[in-house]
Design a protein around this nucleic acid. Structure first.
Lengths: 188, 188
DNA sequence: CGCCGAGTTGAACTGAATCAAGAAACGTGG
DNA sequence: CCACGTTTCTTGATTCAGTTCAACTCGGCG
């Protein structure tokens, strides 16, 4: 079961045998039902998760309404990184959209392993950098692109997104209303 | 002259004496005139800069128009981090708004020092994390706040911004037109 | 003194939000 | 496996915030 995450990690930064064995010991496989919460607002994040199968969303309440911040798909490594790093309350809720299989990694234990194994410390830096580039890119897209353009990019990256995520959630992620996305999609 | 950056670095992550001496050797003090470019689109970033005195802006051309991405103020450490990390072409232009005093740090030499000094390697991680939190915060603000709210935050952090940056640039940063910002400011 | 760039103000226009109603898809229990 | 209720999506009409366009003010500066 941990085979898929091993492959993903090898891509990011290969680990030597002992490092992987130590890391594997702290991995936990979870099967959660749709609507399960991985994290809620005002809670401190404790884990990273690797998405084996399923989809999840991060969102925030504003004026009583959900605003979707991002989605996690298969092979993504997700968490509230800012909460993990600062050990302060999370800004966002993370909730499963589908029944999902996840692999959880306890952050504290992981950090201990970065001190024990050089290769895990290098993996951690790479992860931070990868995460940074992801957020930086999101940030640029939000600044420079219109909702329609961001929609096209999302579709290109995850063509099946609308089969698996509700139109309302996608619209919220794009910063527009469901009605407007419906019209964009219909090409009007 | 390098005293201000030394203080700033000590805040982020204290360096031992030798590490600081090695780091100081690769610092370059620059005095640039307003409108000088630190980096242009399709160029690969080579340096980090610390802003001793002055203001600069990052912007991108879309349909022939400048769109301002961010500002750098006194004490900020700035660069196109994504270009630096990936060593690919920069997405943005970085240009001085005022005559400025900057301290430049060559990235390649800096990375060499992270290998020589443990404390500089830790400083680098801290810088990455600090930068990440900054971008993450910007990203969230863009997603969850309206232009008016972002304007209020900007004013709170840099009350003098409108004395030093043109209304048009601030409006562009906020993603609205100069006319709209003028009306927001007038409280209409 | 007159020009120029920056900011303001007004009026018309427009794209997206809101409000409202109906159609389609989905799943749950009989 | 159908029937019914619920949720999701579409479509239309109206409203509204923000853009665009244009004219005007103000404060340097040659």
């Amino acid at each position: 079961m941990t085979e898929t995450i091993r492959k993903r990690i090898q891509e990011i930064r290969p680990l030597d045998k002992e490092a992987w064995e130590d890391l594997e010991k702290i991995l936990e496989v979870y099967n959660f039902k749709a609507n399960h919460f991985l994290l809620t607002q005002n809670e401190i994040a404790k884990n990273l998760y690797y998405v084996v199968k399923g989809i999840l969303k991060s969102y925030y309440y504003k004026n009583g309404k959900e605003i979707v911040h991002w989605f996690g798909f298969e092979n993504d490594i997700i968490t509230s990184l800012s909460s993990l790093i600062t050990q302060q309350n999370s800004f966002e809720n993370i909730k499963l959209i589908e029944d999902s299989t996840l692999i959880g990694i306890n952050y504290e234990k992981f950090i201990k392993l970065t001190k024990k194994h050089h290769s895990i410390s290098l993996l951690y830096s790479k992860l931070l950098v990868e995460y940074f580039l992801l957020i930086d890119n999101e940030n640029k897209n939000k600044h420079f692109l219109k909702a329609k353009e961001r929609y096209d990019i999302l579709l290109k990256n995850y063509p099946a997104v609308l089969q698996r995520v509700s139109l309302g959630d996608v619209a919220s992620y794009l910063g527009i209303t469901q009605e407007t996305l419906s019209r964009i999609r219909a090409g009007k």
